[in-house]
Amino acid sequence: MTSPMKKILLPTDLSPVSAHALTYALPLAQRLKAEIQMLHVATKVPVDAGSPKTLPTTAADWAAQQPALAEYSEVPISYTETQGAEATDLILEACESEKPDMVVMGTRGSGGLRPGALGGVTISVIQNSEVPVLAVPDSAHYKPIKHIAYATDFNNESFNVVKTLIAFSRLLDARLTCVHVRGEHEYWDRVKRMYYEQLYSLDQVTPSLDLAILHGDNVLHSIQEFARTHEVDLMAMLNRRRDLIDSLYGHSLTREAVLHCRMPLLAFHNQVQH
Score class of each variant (00 low, 15 high):
1 M>K: 10
2 T>I: 04
3 S>G: 02
6 K>N: 13
9 L>S: 09
10 L>E: 10
10 L>S: 06
10 L>N: 07
11 P>G: 14
13 D>A: 03
16 P>L: 06
16 P>M: 08
20 H>C: 01
20 H>N: 12
22 L>D: 05
22 L>E: 08
22 L>T: 13
24 Y>P: 01
26 L>G: 11
27 P>Y: 07
27 P>G: 12
30 Q>C: 00
30 Q>N: 07
31 R>G: 00
33 K>N: 15
34 A>G: 00
37 Q>R: 11
37 Q>S: 08
44 K>E: 15
47 V>D: 15
51 S>M: 09
51 S>H: 14
53 K>A: 12
55 L>K: 11
57 T>D: 13
59 A>H: 02
59 A>T: 03
62 W>M: 02
62 W>P: 02
63 A>M: 08
64 A>S: 14
66 Q>T: 06
67 P>L: 13
71 E>C: 00
72 Y>Q: 01
74 E>L: 01
74 E>I: 01
75 V>M: 03
76 P>M: 13
76 P>H: 13
77 I>Q: 11
80 T>H: 08
83 Q>Y: 07
84 G>H: 05
84 G>M: 01
87 A>T: 09
88 T>M: 00
89 D>M: 04
90 L>Q: 10
91 I>A: 04
92 L>H: 06
95 C>T: 11
96 E>V: 01
97 S>E: 14
99 K>H: 14
102 M>E: 09
107 T>P: 10
111 G>Q: 12
115 P>E: 12
115 P>Q: 14
122 T>Y: 02
123 I>Y: 09
124 S>H: 11
128 N>H: 13
130 E>P: 00
131 V>P: 00
132 P>R: 10
135 A>R: 10
135 A>V: 06
135 A>Y: 10
139 S>R: 14
140 A>D: 09
141 H>L: 05
146 K>I: 09
147 H>I: 02
147 H>G: 00
148 I>V: 15
148 I>A: 06
148 I>Q: 08
148 I>K: 05
150 Y>A: 05
152 T>M: 02
152 T>W: 05
156 N>R: 12
162 V>H: 03
164 T>E: 09
164 T>P: 01
165 L>Q: 11
168 F>N: 14
170 R>T: 05
171 L>G: 15
174 A>S: 12
174 A>K: 07
175 R>W: 11
176 L>A: 03
177 T>F: 05
179 V>L: 06
181 V>T: 08
182 R>L: 02
186 E>W: 03
196 Y>A: 02
196 Y>L: 04
196 Y>V: 02
198 Q>H: 14
202 L>Q: 14
202 L>H: 12
203 D>E: 15
209 L>M: 12
210 D>Q: 12
211 L>H: 11
213 I>N: 13
215 H>Q: 13
217 D>Y: 10
217 D>E: 15
218 N>C: 01
220 L>T: 03
222 S>I: 04
222 S>L: 04
223 I>P: 02
223 I>R: 01
226 F>D: 08
227 A>I: 02
231 E>C: 01
234 L>A: 08
234 L>Q: 13
235 M>R: 05
238 L>D: 03
241 R>E: 15
244 L>E: 15
245 I>N: 15
248 L>V: 13
255 R>E: 08
257 A>G: 10
264 P>C: 04
265 L>W: 11
274 H>S: 03
274 H>A: 00
